[in-house]
Design a protein around this nucleic acid. Sequence first.
DNA 1: GAACTTGCTGAATTG
DNA 2: CAGCAAGTTC
Length: 794
Amino acid sequence: MDFLSGLNEQQRVAVTETEGPLLILAGAGSGKTRVIVHRIAYIIAERGVAPYHILAVTFTNKAAGEMRERVGRLLADQRLQSAPLISTFHSLCVRILRRDIERLEEGHTRSFTIYDQDDSTRIVKAAIKDLGLDSERMGARQVQSAISHAKNSGTDADAYAARIEYGDEKRAAIARVYRLYEERLVNNNALDFDDLMIKAVRLLRKNKEVRDYYNDKFRYILVDEYQDTNSLQFALIRFLTERQQNICVVGDESQSIYRWRGADISNILNFEQHYPDAKEIKLEQNYRSTQNILDTADHVIKRNTERKDKKLWTSNPAGERIRYYQAFDAEGEARFVASKVEEHRRLDPSIRAAVLYRTNAQSRVFEEAMRRANIAYNIVGGFSFYERAEVRDIISYLKLAMNPHDSIAFMRVINTPPRGLGKQTLDELDRRAKDYGVSLWETLAIVTDPTQETRGFAARAASSLKNFQRVITNLVSVAQREPASEVVKAAILDSGYADALKSENTEEAEGRLENLQELVNAAVDYDREEGGGLRDFIDAAALVSDTDQYKRDAPVTLMTVHSAKGLEFPLVFMVGLEDGLFPHSRSATDPAELEEERRLCYVAITRAERFLYVTHAMKRRVYGEELASEPSQFLNEMPFDLMEDLSRGPSWLSFARSSDRLENAHAARALRGQTGGSTRTEKPYEGKTYNSADSIAEFFRQRGQQVNPRPAAGSSPPPVIKRRADAGGKSSSTVAPSAGDAGFTPGTHVRHAKYGRGLVLRREGTGDAAKLTISFPGFGQKKLIEKYAGLEKA
DNA sequence: GAACTTGCTGAATTG
DNA sequence: CAGCAAGTTC
């Protein structure tokens, strides 16, 4: 078989340069996966390397699965004894740790359990409570992310505590939670997601034997999506390439969108410094998108400064123009998308579409619109199968079957289904466990020991405890002799879970039973295909990710832009292109984060093969209240001459096209300033203006609604957009503070000395304390105290 | 002890 | 408008 046919010049080089460090800069749609797959096949078939000497690492199971499949197909006729290891970072670490974690001597044994996000949050929550810190208004999630952040940057609980500034109560509190959290993980013989990476790296650092083992095993290493690696993943790769340097990394810094998770873009930007003999190959031919789509993407991403210089090109036709639509509200946006999907599918019934949004919260209206239009859709993210309560419950039983000392699992199911064990009993059990300093499981044994007295427990509670103990003991023994699927069945039946659901006799319970049947099926499949035993089945369940829900053949897929990375669709809808949403308001303050948002935008655009729609709504419900929204600055960064306006009536785009450039001198300066003041030869700013007040007015007029974008002082007709209901709180007379108030109501355009023209989105508080949230094109959203802001009407 | 009601606070992106 | 914690009722 010829592994090079059908590849272009650069791709060929990327496949055949098998020795030494290699950096492949692969632009969007440039055939990256193809290259990786062929390269693996080439190393095996042409260089005669045994498959088990090859390791390919990805970030998602989905990517790993696809790679495995394609490599398998390429090598189908080779009759190989082994397979290359194609794995995610996380499962690679699990593998390493299951083998040797005991050599770390940090208290974990190789039968450790993996705690997912939800489990960790529970521990954090419990820790906060047990430390009596509840009062300090600390959200468990917040604390957890602080801990996670610390862990990932190599700061352990002691180091974290050592850096408490005097008077920093918050950090002091977090430090205590952090310590307790870590202690409990060890006590439960559990690792969280962060630990998987951390401990694996620490193990390799500490133990030369382990390091040698893997250096000998993996002689060729490939890393996919290298721009998303963080410092730990970098360290892991460094340890694995200690002896040999056959490291090939593939990535695209323009698609780095995980900075917030610790991804370090300099890993890819400085690859040549890390591996001095590195060669570099650029894949610049795009096979995916039309010229117009590519031009649009390029036009946007050009404003970023942190990037390697490369220019994607394509021999594809120019294609259709980008289609723009300004919707009245989120529902209108969704209706538009659904109707366009229908239209496209009428012309081409097999066309696949994606609706890409910035936040998961946006998905709901689209789901509804699709359902109403009777379009089959698949949604990625949100509640996945393995996140459903009933599935997690049964998994907890399975975890107990492997390790009854797992307190989180224990607490989760001791009264699920209800066994008459309430707070009293469980608190008592918990108290004793802490007293004795043993796990809940051991405590249970002590408490139910017939030679002891079950003092402090009601007779009914005591018998329930014994019952639960019996259930788990039985499961443990089933797990020792039966395959995973049998343990799953036993967990569902013996626990009384199935009976409890049956007796509920509701449709919801029916659905849950079906989900559990589904879990049994998954386990049966697992036994047949992987045969790795219950342990691996649970591990796999813990490591499934949202993006693994993607179904290639769904007619329409709804997902976040993040989840869409690596995918492609003939028809793409980018929705919610609004200031504060995309780019997200949380990234407005930091130029580096704004650049990341722009890369995210670039990722979204480049998912499209043939048709790209960009939409935004003029108002949207956030927190159940209506907020006005301005078009995204990214829309402004797209080349208008490649866009076609499908809006009904005048739109932001039509105004932007016709407006003069003076109006936006501020915005132009801001845009240039924010992108690092680059001195590109390209014309700086094309003088398009945000001027949607008029178009909003027009829209409302068309719908016969009242609108008042420029309220006359003194008499304010009801504003279009509702003010947040007394968000200020305490004031006793909270009735219509905006009336008679000379202040600016949401929907008003104002002018600010520094930021120029902007739209008031929201008003909080009254009188002198009034705080305004204003969207300034080019500057994003600002919160200003009205009294000091020196605003004028615009 | 369990099911229900009220009141509050708080959402970005993910393995 | 959520989802969750605390409070209330059976």
